[in-house]
């Protein structure tokens, strides 16, 4: 099994960030794949829950929205939004969120609201949903992005969800007692954040992608000095993803 798609690479790469025992705040799409593949391989004690209130569902079929009835089946419990955001904020837990966005800046701040002026936008996106809450309150979050210059921008058109704010210790100073972006998983590689300045750096690039390719698709300067090639998906990871996680090819297709 040598061939694999970028989507499969992304799902596997993101899944590797999940540790056994993590409580994962998942969206749909690729984050579902990442969370589920991790649970079936290296993090059997991780738990997936949804902002809508579904906690640890069996996920025999992949949900296509966080309010899909598939997030309610075989669950530990079905609750509501207040309960799920309380879990997200629970100090006992290591809660990891998966988020997507239309734009990201060098500190991992996200826009999922609009392009152009907020009151007179050129494009409107769905909005924060629970993204701002997860970015504010979870122990950490991982972002999925298409790697394009227009998405990796110097300045967000609208600032929906807080990353490392202006870098350094600005997040902590603003009143966030924990959390922050851990990684950005794109179709070209994995970005991390500098331990002190909190600026985005290239951490790993995919096989067949050069660090310069990544840099050329980023709208701000990206430190390439620490990157290495990522380990491609293993046979087990691919097999699990295709046969167990998404046999209906709802997301992988």
């Amino acid at each position: 099994m040598t061939g694999y798609s970028k989507l499969e690479m992304m799902a596997v790469a993101a899944g590797r960030f999940i540790a056994d025992g993590d409580v994962v705040f998942a969206g749909t799409g690729i984050s579902m794949l990442a969370a589920t593949v991790a649970k079936r391989i290296h993090a059997p004690n991780s738990v997936v829950f949804f902002e809508t209130g579904g906690i640890d569902p069996s996920l025999d079929e992949l949900p296509m929205a966080v309010a899909d009835p598939r997030v309610m089946a075989g669950a530990s419990m079905n609750s509501g939004l207040i309960e799920s955001f309380s879990l997200l904020s629970n100090r006992r837990l290591r809660t990891i969120a998966f988020l997507g966005a239309a734009q990201i800046d060098r500190y991992g701040n996200l826009n999922s609201t609009c392009l152009g002026d907020y009151r007179n936008p050129t494009i409107r996106f769905p909005g924060s949903g629970g993204a701002c809450d997860a970015a504010s309150l979870a122990s950490g979050f991982i972002i999925f992005m298409e790697h394009e210059k227009k998405r990796f921008v110097n300045k967000l058109d609208y600032f929906t969800s807080p990353g490392w704010l202006n870098g350094d210790d600005s997040r902590e100073k603003a009143g966030f007692s924990r959390g922050g972006p851990v990684a950005v998983v794109t179709n070209l590689g994995i970005m991390a954040f500098h331990p002190t300045t909190k600026e985005m750096i290239l951490s790993q690039h995919y096989p067949g992608v050069s660090p310069e390719d990544v840099s050329n698709n980023t709208g701000f300067e990206l430190d390439l000095s620490r990157t290495s090639e990522v380990l491609p998906p293993t046979e087990l990871e691919l097999k699990t993803l295709r046969d167990k996680v998404d046999p209906q090819r709802l997301i992988l297709s």
Partner: peptide, 14 residues
């Protein structure tokens, strides 16, 4: 809540 501090959700009034 602590959610949204410093973001446009709290800075921009629609």
């Amino acid at each position: 809540t602590k959610s949204g501090l410093e973001t446009d959700l709290v800075k921009i009034d629609g």
